[in-house]
Design a protein around this nucleic acid. Structure first.
Lengths: 225, 225
DNA sequence: CGCCGGAGTATTGTATACAATATCCACATG
DNA sequence: CATGTGGATATTGTATACAATACTCCGGCG
């Protein structure tokens, strides 16, 4: 079918700008694991599937490269980033620090609305199906995002977003969601400390949580490799 | 002069790709304060000055927006980001944590080459002219970059780069380089702790340094506003 | 049989053309 | 005189055209 490429109603939710739609579409596809790490992204093919030209596609790709989700070398296209074991270790080391800070700040700065959002996010994690690692990954990410959001620190929010995205990448590489028995307990501990406005306890709990899961994911990563 | 726009030898160091050249050019211009915060960036005018078309310009702009150096609203162009006092406070709060981690990791992981680079970077800071705030800003940034580099943690490097760039933006907004009397002492303290492989001391010294200067810059920022 | 080379193809990189939105200023109107 | 309305202009957003680089695959050669 060679019919007009750029007349069909957009194949994705279209915000004001096409490039923003493409950006969100691609970002979600990578974060959900629909495009596997290492997989190539062809500009023309993607453009035809979404019904847009290459221009907004390329602009979205530039942004995603800067986010660290895509990598590309000159004249050779872009691929979903693959993370080495060392990079994963590095990422978790930083995340421990940053998530700790986020939890501590959230304990001090969260509002009533934040508290409600945190509780809701944790409930969702608890209600997730145990065999759907994508859903679990997304809900877990939601919970952590809720915490950093409650910290009311824009700079932290930006950086934490970067790190969380990379962690999502790592998890998709292992293709496992580690339902560690302590998960629920650790999440609850973090939430309680935050709601109690106990910054020190919140930081400590968040750091422990990151450390626990980092070790777990790393185990899978080196085993799978 | 309507002569051929795209034949003149490029007005900037041209790497493999034009867009990379534009990106570095713009990034440097913003970080050096050549383009002031809030100032508008016209695509056509910049293209004519650099002798390239709008395509690589726009792709570079996308990357810089993702870096947080430029902001833009739909159909209304991009400007160099202006940082609010609250954003600056947030940035320094995160940077304290991250620079602390960087110093601690550098203390543990630095090589002989790193040590030499660190000493050299600090020497340069000491030799800087007192009245050139751009040079001082750049050399100070160099020293901090040398530390995070010596930490040998890629994720930390990426995030610290982001933060340092934002700090540079903030400093250009105040247009002052605070030659706090403790600067030299604090820098020396950090360096010594790192070289001694005393992670705890390095972290503590780095955090103190960020805190001291954050407070100073913030003072100027609210005073200037 | 493996490896080197080169035409042909595919894909990315850059430039330009076209479309849509915003900005500006003159002018009318209350 | 303030205001707002209209069109002309400028600028961004998207699409397409052209250029340059990389990949493929086949044939020749050692």
């Amino acid at each position: 079918m060679t019919l007009s490429k750029h007349s069909a109603p957009a194949a994705f939710a279209r915000p004001v700008l096409v490039r923003d739609g493409v950006y969100e579409h691609l970002r979600r596809a990578v974060l959900d694991g629909e495009i596997a790490p290492g997989e190539r992204i062809g500009e023309v093919e993607l453009g035809e599937r979404l019904g847009v030209s290459r221009t907004p596609i390329r602009e979205a790709i530039m942004r995603l490269m800067q986010d660290g989700l895509l990598v590309g070398s000159a004249n050779r296209g872009v691929r979903v980033r693959t993370v080495t074991a060392q990079e994963a270790r590095d990422t978790y080391a930083v995340r421990e620090e940053l998530d700790g800070l986020g939890a501590a700040l959230a304990a001090a700065a969260h509002t009533a609305a934040d508290a409600a959002a945190l509780r809701a996010a944790l409930d969702e994690v608890g209600a997730a199906r145990g065999d759907d690692y994508r859903q679990q990954t997304r809900l877990d990410l939601n919970f952590h995002r809720a915490i950093t959001h409650a910290a009311h620190n824009a700079a932290l929010g930006d950086l934490a977003r970067d790190l969380e995205q990379r962690v999502a990448l790592i998890k998709h590489q292992t293709r496992t969601y580690n339902a560690h028995p302590d998960t629920a307990v650790q999440h609850a501990t973090i939430l309680r400390a935050v709601l109690d406005r106990d910054a020190a306890a919140a930081r400590k709990a968040a750091r422990l949580h990151v450390r626990t899961f980092g070790a777990l994911v790393l185990q899978d990563l080196v085993a799978g490799a």
